[in-house]
Design a protein around this nucleic acid. Structure first.
Length: 247
RNA sequence: UCAAAGGUU
């Protein structure tokens, strides 16, 4: 089953949902006590559907799953993430409430999915309320949670608040990564504040965090959009020197 | 063996 699950996961990641489903149906069809899909098989398929925004297929397989398994935390976070990304926050919240009713404890990932959903919908109030809720549930926000909130603030133009949250993250003992820095840098560039963007870039480098392709993309575009073409060509040279190719 | 965050509009 583990081998099958990995195969199905591989198909899903390639975007080949068709092959994934065919394989799933095949192991469901080999009735005997030979192979049976387990909950992970369903989770993997759900994730594939979610990435492709195949909402109706999810409902079909939900029905199949219920016949043999109860959803676990991974199942629920996959559903919640999908509904959030489809913009159906009410449904996402419903899954969140239902899982608690069924005695499942939402974990860090579940909260972070919801927080991201509300951030992207522009509802920072609820996002921060969830951030408080998770702390009250004795869950410690990690760098993904913080990066999500920081990006939400930056995208709404609240770069100063994002900077405060960035500091709070450090006080909280959470190590920033390239994603958290990239959101801050992007936020400042979009405000036309090249100096503070470059400040965060220096901090990032001081901490020995390697710039990845997304980080370079933000910096290069930011410098270009702010008329600093000379500097941006230097950054491009850096990127090439570090062995990354502009994509 | 499975779930969450950043750049391209």
């Amino acid at each position: 089953v583990i081998t099958y699950n990995s195969l199905i996961d591989g198909y899903c990641r390639r975007g080949d949902i068709r092959s994934a489903c065919l394989l799933m149906n095949k192991i469901r069809g080999t009735d005997p006590s030979k192979y049976k899909p387990d909950l992970v098989t369903f989770n993997v398929l759900f994730n594939g559907f979610c990435k492709m925004k195949m909402r109706t297929e999810v409902f079909v397989y939900m029905g199949l799953m219920w016949k043999c398994f109860l959803p676990n935390v991974v199942t629920c976070s996959t559903w919640i993430d999908m509904f959030c990304k489809l913009g159906d926050l009410d449904m996402a919240f419903r899954v969140f409430n239902d899982m608690r009713k069924d005695g499942l404890l939402p974990n860090l990932v579940v909260f972070t999915c919801l927080i991201d959903g509300y951030c992207k919908a522009g509802n920072l109030e609820v996002a921060f309320k969830l951030y408080e809720d998770m702390r009250q549930a004795s869950l410690s926000p990690n760098v993904v949670t913080y990066a999500t909130l920081i990006d939400g603030l930056c995208k709404r133009g609240k770069v100063e608040k994002a900077g405060c949250l960035f500091s709070r993250m450090l006080e909280d003992g959470v190590e920033p990564n390239s994603v958290a820095y990239t959101s801050m840098i992007d936020g400042y560039f979009k405000k036309g504040n090249v100096d503070d963007a470059m400040n965060y870039l220096s901090k990032m480098r001081d901490q020995g965090i390697n710039l990845d392709v997304a980080a370079y993309g933000v910096i290069i575009a930011g410098l270009c959009n702010n008329g600093r073409l000379r500097l941006s060509t230097e950054i491009i040279e850096d990127m090439v020197r570090s062995g990354l190719n502009p994509d």
